[in-house]
Design a protein around this nucleic acid. Structure first.
Length: 434
RNA sequence: GCGGCUAUAGUUCAGGGGCAGAACGCCUGUCUGUGGCACAGGAUGUCGUGGGUUCGAUCCCCACUAGCCGCCCCA
């Protein structure tokens, strides 16, 4: 029988790496809370129609990357339902916003999420079929200020703060405006017209994109095509006055808050629901998957899935990519300190095992990280195990059990002493700072 | 979905048509209530899976699977 393995594109996260994941999530929760966001947890699967309508039928995500299945009917009378593992979380959040009538509060809904998403893509470093995203959305009725450019700038400023607090250095923020739902089709037509006479000189991919999705031509990385692309009309010139003004105000607010960014005229995003502001934080050293996070405004998404007008802006970060970036940085600097227990309790003989567990319980209840040995171990083995996992070792033999005076050896100094049980916790806690 | 590279010990990797290798790690002992350091010894394994060529395949060939890199797309 063949050995079972994690399926393609999925993987196990083990200690100590999981500590890094927890740190990232803790920083995210801390930062988002200060911007007055609350956590939302939506189901991991949804009605397939949500993603078809929300993300866009023609996007790669929906057309070929979703894990979709027909749910079983429970009764003859019940119809089967097409369900899909969520490929992203914005559509689910907006669905929940509509379902729970959050717009009726008259306030902005400011929600963040942390959780797994699923796309059936070819796995690569920093790209998995189950991957975790951290994201946030600001949604609300227009009268709550959801369309304000200040919201866009605040989200971007929050992200800059998050990356800084997490300790990621060298990130780049690129922003652009893809215009309103009216601007975008107009620009696409302008682009098609401009491409027509020159497309034959471009790479095969671009020739295909010019037909299927002209905006994608702007993403082309082939050096020979760059002069042609640079000469194409810019989307900024197709924006109506409201969109142009909106974008200018986003930029002005970013300038005032000192968040560095570049205006990238070529930044278009793949999901259909984006309008006006789009952005991307990138980082070198991630290879081809250089986007740390991306997002933008989606003023029409709620209506696209049957809800009220509820403009919003949000982003999604690839948690795997944050981990990779931090790991690369820590490799350059100093390795993260390994997890180490405060002490290792070594019962000297099986007769001391019960007392050892009781002592461990006492210390653990005082907040200490304690590893527990076994009385069948030879003392030498206990020391070897202790030295690998803990800062110190506590010997618990017959003498110690009777007297209540424990023998403690601290590995950093090699010093050994007798300590009353009542003073043990303080002594061990003190070792953390040495 | 397409193209390229890779798969050998717990880990990182070398090797090569005829007994399976190194380093680190692991285990044992020198040392029976004392770790690290040193010395001595030991175990590592279906050489990714399945087929083919061959007297003989871990090595050559094919397929599959998985990983990595790039494309597509995206976080």
């Amino acid at each position: 029988m063949s050995t079972l393995k994690a399926v393609r594109g999925t993987r196990d996260l083990l200690p100590p790496e999981t500590a890094l994941w927890n740190r990232i999530e803790a920083v995210a929760r801390s930062v988002f809370a200060r911007y007055n966001f609350g956590e939302i947890r939506t189901p991991i699967f949804e009605d397939t129609a949500l993603f078809a309508r929300g993300v866009g039928e023609e996007t790669d995500i929906v057309s070929k990357e979703m894990y979709t299945w027909e749910d079983r009917a429970r009764a003859q009378s019940e119809k089967t339902q097409s369900l899909t593992l969520r490929p992203e979380n914005t559509a689910g959040v907006v669905r929940a916003y509509i379902e729970h009538k959050l717009g009726e509060t008259g306030q902005l809904a400011k929600l963040y999420y942390i959780g797994p998403q699923f796309r059936r893509e070819r796995p690569q470093k920093g790209r998995y079929r189950q991957f975790s995203q951290i994201g946030a959305e600001v949604i609300g009725p227009t009268h709550a200020g959801s369309e304000s450019p200040l919201r866009d700038a605040e989200v971007l400023e929050m992200l800059a703060t998050f990356l800084d607090e997490l300790g990621i250095t060298g990130w780049t923020l690129k922003i652009n405006s893809v215009g309103s739902s009216a601007d975008r089709p107009r620009y696409i037509e302008t682009l098609r017209t401009a491409l027509a006479p020159v497309v034959s000189q471009m790479c095969p991919d671009c020739q295909r994109r010019a037909e299927t999705n002209p905006l994608r031509v702007l993403d082309c990385k082939i050096p020979e095509d760059q002069p042609i692309i640079d000469a194409l009309p810019r989307i900024a010139d197709s924006l109506d006055e409201a969109s142009r003004d909106h974008f200018a105000q986003v930029c002005a607010a970013l300038d005032a808050s000192g968040v560095p960014y570049t205006h990238d005229h070529r930044l278009v995003r793949g999901l259909d629901y984006y309008t006006r502001t789009t952005f991307e934080f990138t980082h070198g050293g991630l290879g081809a998957q250089n986007a740390l996070l991306g997002g933008g405004r989606y003023d029409g998404l709620s209506e696209a899935i049957g809800g009220p007008k509820a403009p919003g802006i949000g982003f999604a970060m690839g948690e795997d990519r944050l981990v990779l970036t931090l790991q690369a940085q820590e490799a350059n600097q100093k390795a993260a300190p390994p997890q180490v227990a405060d002490t290792y309790i070594a019962p000297l003989g099986p007769a001391q095992n019960p007392a050892a567990l009781a002592l461990a319980r006492t210390l653990r209840r005082q907040g200490l990280r304690v590893e527990l040995g076994d009385g069948t171990f030879r003392l030498k083995k206990s020391f070897e195990a202790a030295d690998k996992t803990a800062r110190s070792i506590v010997l618990l033999g017959e003498d110690e059990a009777q007297s209540g005076i424990l023998t403690v050896k601290v590995f950093a100094t090699g010093s050994q002493s007798k300590v009353p049980q009542t003073e043990l916790a303080d002594l061990l806690a003190g070792l953390r700072n040495t």
